[in-house]
Amino acid sequence: MKEAGMSLIVKRITKITVSLIFLYGVYIVLHGHITPGGGFAGGVIIALSFIHLVLAFGKEAALKRLNETAVSAIESLGGLLFWGIALLGLLGGVFFLNILPKGRIFHLFSSGTIVLCNIAIFLKVGAGLFAIFIALAAMRMPAEKKEGKK
């Protein structure tokens, strides 16, 4: 029975890079309204950092940090948040109205609800992509066991 995950070199490098990837994802999400990128791209990058963990350390190690229930809850929360932001527009009378102050153009704190929308999309996409990966990994396990018996 060998250890879960890949070799020592991969694990060591992953430990260094994974937080950087995560941070880059957060940067992309928060700057979505002023530079290329946004909730979807940032969400994918953050999901990739978790997938990175799964590949290097095995499924269990990654799931210890973020289990299936939490992933599913975060995904729904993302959708609900986006829905809530759209509903917030009703305070100004129209669905999806951007009611927050717009700020100065090209500054980090600008564009009203767009930043919040990006964060909601990031939660939805990131958690969704990671959930899909976990589901595929779970499907792969029984197939591997069968091959081992042969």
């Binding site: 809850a73 959708g79 609900l80 759209a86 669905f95 999806f96």
Partner: peptide, 21 residues
């Protein structure tokens, strides 16, 4: 008019969380 989309969409996102408890 958007009420026809708001209601079922909100319901779809609420159900996975609500059915947890």
């Amino acid at each position: 008019l958007p009420i026809f989309v708001i209601i079922p969409l909100g319901c779809a996102f609420l159900i996975p969380i609500a059915s947890k408890w």
